[in-house]
Design a protein around this nucleic acid. Structure first.
Lengths: 88, 88
DNA sequence: ACTCACCACAGAGTATTCTCTACAAATTCA
DNA sequence: TGAATTTGTAGAGAATACTCTGTGGTGAGT
């Protein structure tokens, strides 16, 4: 599990915990909405300045956002083809 | 205390702890020597990829490098004017 | 004085992050 | 089904991280 993924997972979790949309978080952290989206999809490696800004808004410690999730969530690696069971 | 400073302090401490020079650390982490120097002087905001690479080489947790030093270190702020008016 | 190892610092170039605009899929609500 | 909200994604440009090269300063050992 790479550091971007750890960060992405923690970021999304903390964001939801705070009850914020990507847009609202972006606004408060003075960042772009699409960039938040990218971070949660591991597109970029955020700088520690960005990390710090997000942590402040989310009310967590910066180091917390890089902490590898304990349960380790091996299953979360790939959403396989979830399209099949649509049955609609 | 800004996040770059926290990182700089922790990086330098971990590096010395590991008994490495900036050059040796740079080599092992596949980074440039002058860049390591810059990071320890808060010139740049490292990306989390770099942070992760350095943490691996130094044998510490990535989150550890962002952990605010306990205690304080308020005194270490500035090397006063050590120039001594050299005058050409 | 000389060498050696280590570090600060600057300038220019390359690579990557981050912003902005725009469109579309997914989700929620009525 | 339809409207509002949220998120994914793409492309182009501005900002900044990161590399490479070179200069100089400091302290230890000879």
């Amino acid at each position: 599990m790479d550091i971007r993924e750890i960060f992405a997972i923690n970021l999304r979790a903390a964001r939801k915990e705070a009850g914020l949309s990507q847009e609202e978080l972006a606004y408060r952290a003075d960042l772009d909405r699409t960039y938040i989206s990218s971070l949660e999809r591991c597109v970029y490696a955020a700088s520690i300045d960005v990390l710090d800004g997000l942590a402040k808004v989310l009310g967590v410690d910066p180091a917390e956002l890089l902490r590898r999730p304990e349960g380790k969530a091996r299953a979360a690696s790939g959403p396989k083809s979830r399209k099949g069971s649509k049955a609609g």
